[in-house]
C-alpha cells in the first residue's frame, strides 16, 4: 500500500519519537510512505491568525506538491494539526469557490496548481485501523500489552471539525484508538476526556490557562487508574509530557503519567525493542510502567449475565449501532 507522506515540522523535532516509531512499524505492516518533496510548514494554528488567503496558500503548496498522476492519491499526515490544515484546505477550496480561486492564483505565482479534492487527506491512525485493519494488526501481536491500563487520548483535531460529515470517527466519542489498544492486548479505560483540549498553543500564550487544561486530563486519567496516556498528536504529546513537571510544580500536584504515541505501542506489541521506537525520549519516563508488559495479571470474573433475584437495577439503554 503506497501513500503520500507529510511528516510536518513537529516530527522532525519535538515529535521525533513519533516519526521513528511510525517508520519502524510501517514496513512490517506493509505500508510504503513516499514523503512529499520539499514540503513546508502547515502554519499550525498561527498563520491563520494573521493572514487568511496566505494561510490557505501555505497549506495548498503542500497539496500541490503531493498531487500528481504518478503519485499516491492518499496523503497521510501523522500530526493531527497538519492533518486538519491539509484536510480543511482541501475541503474549503472546493466548498468556497472564491477562496479556492484566490488560493490557486497565489499558487500560480509559484508555478503550482491544486485541484481541490484530488487528494484524500488521511490521518495515520485512519490508515492503520482501516487499511491494515484490526485483524491483520492483531495477527502481528507477539507481545500483548496485557496488564497495561491505557487511557486513549484523541485530542481535538483528529475528529473535529466535522467538515460535512467527513470526520474519521465520532466527533465527541471516537472509539478507534480504544479498539486499537484492545487489539494490542491493553486494558483500555473509558476515558471521558478523550477528545478534550490539551491546551494547544496556550502553553505559549497563557500558561495558567494551559496548565489547568493539562491538569484536568492528567487528573481524570489518574482517577481512572491509567498507567499511561496514548496519543496520536505531537502537540498533545508535547503539552502533556513536557509540561507535566510545570503543572505539578505550579498546581501542587504529583502526576507521573507517561505519554506515548500509539505507533510506539504498536511497535511494542509487535515485539520491537523500545529503543527502536524511540521510547526513552519522553520527558516523563515510561520505563517503570512498561515493566508491566508480559507480567501475568488476574483475569477479572466474567460479567454476570443473569439478573440476581434482589437486583433492583434498571436496564441500561441499548445503543443502536451505526
Amino acid at each position: 500500500m503506497r501513500y503520500g507522506y507529510y511528516p510536518g515540522c513537529s516530527l522532525t523535532g519535538t515529535a521525533r519519537p513519533y516519526e521513528v516509531s511510525t517508520k519502524a512499524i510501517a514496513g512490517p505492516l506493509g505500508l510504503t510512505f513516499e514523503e512529499v518533496e520539499d514540503w513546508n510548514c502547515c502554519g499550525a494554528t498561527e498563520y491563520m491568525s494573521l493572514n487568511k488567503t496566505a494561510a490557505y496558500a501555505l497549506v495548498a503548496r503542500n497539496l500541490a506538491l503531493a498531487a500528481g498522476e504518478d503519485k499516491p492519491k492518499d496523503l497521510v499526515a501523522p500530526c493531527s494539526l497538519c492533518y486538519l490544515n491539509l484536510r480543511k484546505t482541501n475541503h474549503y477550496m472546493a466548498k468556497y469557490k472564491s477562496l479556492g480561486k484566490m488560493t490557486n492564483q497565489a499558487l500560480a505565482a509559484g508555478g503550482l496548481h491544486y485541484t481541490p479534492g484530488s487528494l484524500n487527506v488521511r490521518h495515520l491512525i485512519d490508515v492503520i485501523v482501516n487499511d491494515v485493519g484490526y485483524e491483520a494488526l492483531g495477527a502481528r501481536v507477539t507481545r500483548p500489552l496485557t496488564g497495561l491500563r491505557v487511557a486513549p487520548y484523541y485530542g481535538c483535531l483528529l475528529v473535529r471539525p466535522d467538515l460535512n460529515g467527513g470526520s474519521f470517527d465520532d466527533t465527541e466519542y471516537p472509539t478507534h484508538l480504544d479498539r486499537l489498544m484492545e487489539t494490542l492486548g491493553a486494558e483500555v479505560v473509558d476515558f471521558p476526556l478523550k477528545t478534550h483540549c490539551c491546551g494547544g498553543h496556550m502553553t505559549q500564550i497563557s500558561a495558567e490557562t494551559a496548565y489547568e487544561l493539562i491538569r484536568r486530563l492528567l487528573h481524570n486519567a489518574a482517577e481512572y487508574r491509567a498507567d499511561l496516556l496514548v496519543t496520536l498528536c505531537p502537540m498533545c504529546q508535547f503539552n502533556l509530557d513536557a509540561y507535566q513537571t510545570q503543572v505539578n510544580r505550579h498546581l501542587g500536584t504529583d502526576f507521573h503519567l507517561p505519554i506515548l504515541y500509539f505507533t510506539q505501542m504498536i511497535g511494542l506489541a509487535m515485539g520491537m525493542e523500545p529503543k527502536a521506537l524511540a521510547i526513552g525520549q519522553e520527558i516523563v519516563s515510561a520505563a517503570s510502567v512498561l515493566r508491566k508488559i508480559g507480567t501475568a495479571v488476574e483475569v477479572e470474573e466474567a460479567p454476570q449475565t443473569r439478573r440476581k433475584r434482589d437486583d433492583k437495577s434498571l436496564p441500561m439503554p441499548r445503543i443502536r449501532e451505526g
Binding site: D38, W39, N40, N51, K52, T53, A54, Y56, A57, L58, R61, M102, T103, Q105, A106, L107, A108, A109, G110, G111, L112
Partner: peptide, 18 residues
C-alpha cells in the same frame, strides 16, 4: 526548504490578493 523563494512568492501573492 529548497523552494523557499517559490513559497515566499506564493505567500506574497496571496497577501496582495487579499
Amino acid at each position: 526548504i529548497k523552494g523557499i523563494d517559490q513559497l515566499r512568492t506564493i505567500l506574497d501573492t496571496a497577501k496582495s490578493l487579499e
